[in-house]
Design a protein around this nucleic acid. Structure first.
Ligand SMILES: NC(=O)c1ccc[n+]([C@@H]2O[C@H](COP(=O)([O-])OP(=O)(O)OC[C@H]3O[C@@H](n4cnc5c(N)ncnc54)[C@H](O)[C@@H]3O)[C@@H](O)[C@H]2O)c1
Ligand SMILES: NC(=O)c1ccc[n+]([C@@H]2O[C@H](COP(=O)([O-])OP(=O)(O)OC[C@H]3O[C@@H](n4cnc5c(N)ncnc54)[C@H](O)[C@@H]3O)[C@@H](O)[C@H]2O)c1
Lengths: 253, 253
DNA sequence: AGAAGTTTGTGAACGTGAGAACAAACCGAG
DNA sequence: CTCGGTTTGTTCTCACGTTCACAAACTTCT
């Protein structure tokens, strides 16, 4: 942590607790709510952005606006991590940024492998934004021999058979699947067997994994379809007629 | 709808209501819960998959397994659309598939524009999966003159200044932003001004939009960071030591 | 036709999350 | 040191989402 402003809030003196025994520390470490975990990265980015603009402190209101959430929600979220603000003042940007990064686990880089270097895999491999956010792509794997050897973003495409050795040697815990849906479950099984315990899946395919393995999916078609649903509601509502009638008509067709 | 099996469930006879006046129809049309809306596309895909394997009917249990959810949740979700199953039998795959597609609004195609044809934009433009799921990419726009004219997936890259005309002529309601974060808000404002009311944003940037405009974001770094959080929890738990101690130590650093 | 077996649709209990509101804590002025 | 202004951390309440459990409705077998 190379912050130019590492002075801390109130209890910066060595003498710890005066009133309550657990004053400055985290209240109950176990279990940050999942909804909160999903927002922490957003706060982290907002803080990084503030930091780049040389903002030293910020209020929950400012940070909430930057992150696009309610300020009460933000304060509650942060309270799960501990008591890192100063009443009447706000939060030290650098300090809070570090605390969130530490909580998420991105104070050091996680090695990542990407499997399936087609359209999407190329884009991911060429993306420079991961490295600054706690991740290091250590290998690009593809089953197609024609693709192997090609250089993408400074990394050569390797055979999928190198997987096991790679995971072992580089301590890879996170894998990205960007293969066709049809191959996704096989690739997933192989990743899990090799020791990967977190998977980000781009293939439109429900993956089944054993306990202890986390899967998150990114599905662009689903996102668009959700937008389409709301879009349809809007245009039906705008059409003025009551929805029951329209739906009744459409249903008969 | 060209289903080989268009016979319908129980009340297929013309005489409609016998017991309750609104027997076969939707109970209360207004407002499907957002969580349900987000799952309908998953069910749709599972049904399409079953349909391709020539499965005529399926139980809630089978469909739930295919979609990766609890069967009770699935039934409750479907109940918001209406009563499309047959007790003791299950659901007619084709029929249910159509009903969900209609509810989502993907029985006909939505025209979509993509703005920012860089790494990611190229991948999206080359992706063939959208057209079969209710979307038609009608234009690729980029501000960089050097990119304009290039052919990607059968479509030429056009100037961002063509936006307004395009939205007007093609009735575009959905826009995809794949520009750098720094340009995202400007592009967003321009899209909204042109008449786009749904936006899918890939840039790591919180967008502010007026009421009536929907924004969904896809943020890969956030997804990875969520995985990293859980991964960290796993490795800390595995290390055996109680978490409070480790966190306390790390916090002092 | 009646009984036995299936499967849906939904009411009710439970858990999680969001937001308003406020006391506690902090700063700075006088 | 005290007072007024500011902002956090937390409590309380309400809304939303998930899961259980079961009656109603349907099929099939005898
Ligand atoms: N391209 C997009 O913009 C986009 C959008 C939405 C979803 N997706 C999904 O992302 C996935 C990848 O899309 P794409 O457009 O890059 O596809 P693609 O066909 O261009 O690339 C797939 C790559 O995976 C490799 N592959 C196939 N089987 C493999 C295996 N068993 N092991 C390792 N590698 C294997 C292929 O050789 C190929 O290089 C697909 O599931 C697609 O549905 C892509
Ligand atoms: N590539 C990935 O895999 C990836 C992963 C995660 C997030 N993202 C995000 O997606 C976005 C695009 O990523 P990329 O790798 O394709 O970037 P890129 O730099 O390759 O492409 C950006 C494109 O946007 C165009 N552009 C810039 N300003 C514009 C404007 N005002 N109007 C129209 N077009 C404009 C540029 O000319 C360029 O072609 C970025 O915000 C990035 O952070 C990308």
């Amino acid at each position: 942590m190379s912050s130019p402003r590492s002075a801390r809030n109130g209890g910066s003196d060595g003498s710890s607790a005066k009133r309550t025994p657990d004053a400055g520390a985290k209240p109950a470490e176990r279990g940050i709510p999942e909804a909160t975990v999903a927002r922490l990265p957003v706060y982290l980015r907002a803080l990084t952005s503030l930091s780049e603009r040389s903002t030293a402190t910020c209020s929950s209101e400012e940070l909430a606006t930057a992150a696009g959430v309610n300020s009460a929600k933000l304060r509650k979220d942060l309270s799960y991590l501990g008591s890192y603000g100063t009443r009447g003042v706000g939060y030290d940007v650098e300090y809070l940024r570090y605390q969130i990064a530490r909580e998420i686990g991105v104070t050091q880089d996680w090695p990542v492998v990407i499997v399936g270097i087609g359209n999407l895999g190329h884009a991911l491999a060429n993306y420079s934004g991961f490295s600054s956010r706690g991740f290091r792509i250590v290998a690009l794997l593809d089953a197609d021999p024609a693709r192997q050897g090609e250089d993408v973003g400074g990394l050569g495409i390797r055979s999928f058979d190198d997987l096991e050795q790679l995971v072992e040697e580089q301590r890879v815990a996170i894998g990205v699947i960007a293969t066709p849906a049809q191959a996704a479950q096989d690739v997933c099984d192989r990743l899990v067997a090799a020791g990967v315990t977190s998977i980000l899946n781009f293939a439109p395919q429900v993956l089944s994994v054993p306990d202890g393995v986390d899967v998150r999916k990114v599905d662009l078609s689903i996102e668009l379809q959700i937008l389409a649903y709301h879009e349809q509601r809007k245009s039906l509502a705008e059409a003025g007629a009551d929805l029951e009638t329209i739906d009744a008509i459409e249903k008969v067709i």
